[in-house]
Design a protein around this nucleic acid. Structure first.
Lengths: 142, 142
DNA sequence: CAGAATCCTCGACGATACTG
DNA sequence: CAGTATCGTCGAGGATTCTG
C-alpha cells in the first residue's frame, strides 16, 4: 500500500510487512476488542473492573492483553494507585484520542456502505445455492 | 462502536458481533492481503496470474480466497472468458473503488501517527527490559 | 492458466485456577 | 481489585499436489 501507492508494479511482501504504515494501524486496531475498548475509554479515566463490566463478555485475560498492547502503542495511559485494594485507571492518550477520530471515519464509511456489502453477500450466497451448475449455457460471448 | 456510540454504558458482545458496521468493515479489509490486493486492482482489470506476480509472496490459495471474499462482498467483479486456456479478469466495482477511498483515509492517518506508535513501542520495550524490577526502591511518591 | 483439495502450523482468543 | 499462569480450541493462512 505504501510500496506501490503511485504505480502498481510489483509488491515486496517483506517490505510491506515491515514498512507499510497502514498494516501497522490495521493490525493495531482490527483486533476483536480494541475498537470497543477505545470507545469505552472515550469518556475519561476508567478502572479495570468497570471496563470489564462495560465490555460485557470480555475475559480478564483479553482485557489485560488488549489494554497492555494499547499502552505499548502509546494510545492508553495506565495509572496505578498503590492502595489496598489496588486501583488502576486507564485513559486515552492524545494518540488514543486521534484513534477515535480514525475510527469515526471508518464508522462513517461503514454505515454508508455496509448495507451494500450485506446485500452483495446475500445475492452471492443465493446464486451459489440456487444455481444448480449451469452446465451447457452457450452464451454467445460478444 | 455502534451500540454505544453516544453513551458509554454496557456493550452486548453478541449484538456487537452481529450489528457493528465497523466490525464488518474491519473484518473485511484487515486481512493479510486485502489491502494490497485492492491496491493492485486500482489501475483496472487484471488477470489472475498477473495479480499473483504483483502480490509477490501470495499463495494461489490465499489469492483465490481473498478474491472470492471480495467478490462476495461486492467489491470485486470477476469476469470469465471461456477460452482455452481459461482467462479470468478481476476489477474493482464501484464499492471497491469506495474502499480505496477508505483505505486512503487510513493510510493518511497511518503516515501521520505510525511514527508515534513505533516510538511508543520502543520506549515501552526499553522500560520493560532495562528496569530490572525495582523491588525496594523507596521512591518518596509525592 | 486458473483454480480445487488436502495437510499442517501458528497465533488469537476463551476458560479456568491462583495471587498480592 | 487487578491481575498472572496454564491449558485448550479454532480459524487464518502457507505448502504441496492435482486438474479442466
Amino acid at each position: 500500500m505504501d510500496t506501490a501507492s503511485d504505480q502498481c508494479t510489483t509488491f515486496s511482501v517483506d517490505a510491506y510487512m515491515r514498512d507499510c504504515a497502514s498494516r501497522t494501524v490495521l493490525d493495531a486496531i482490527a483486533n476483536k476488542w480494541t475498537c470497543l475498548l477505545v470507545d469505552a475509554l472515550r469518556a475519561g479515566p476508567v478502572r479495570f473492573g468497570v471496563l470489564r463490566r462495560r465490555l460485557d463478555g470480555i475475559t480478564q485475560k483479553s482485557l489485560t492483553q488488549t489494554l497492555r498492547t494499547l499502552e505499548r502503542d502509546g494510545m492508553v495511559i495506565r495509572t496505578v494507585y498503590p492502595t489496598i485494594p489496588p486501583r488502576v485507571e486507564y485513559e486515552l492518550s492524545e494518540l488514543g484520542m486521534s484513534v477515535v477520530s480514525l475510527m469515526k471515519g471508518i464508522k462513517h464509511w461503514a454505515e454508508e456502505h455496509v448495507p451494500e456489502i450485506v446485500a452483495a453477500r446475500a445475492a452471492f450466497d443465493r446464486r451459489a445455492t440456487e444455481e444448480p451448475v449451469p452446465i451447457s449455457t452457450p452464451t454467445p460471448a460478444g
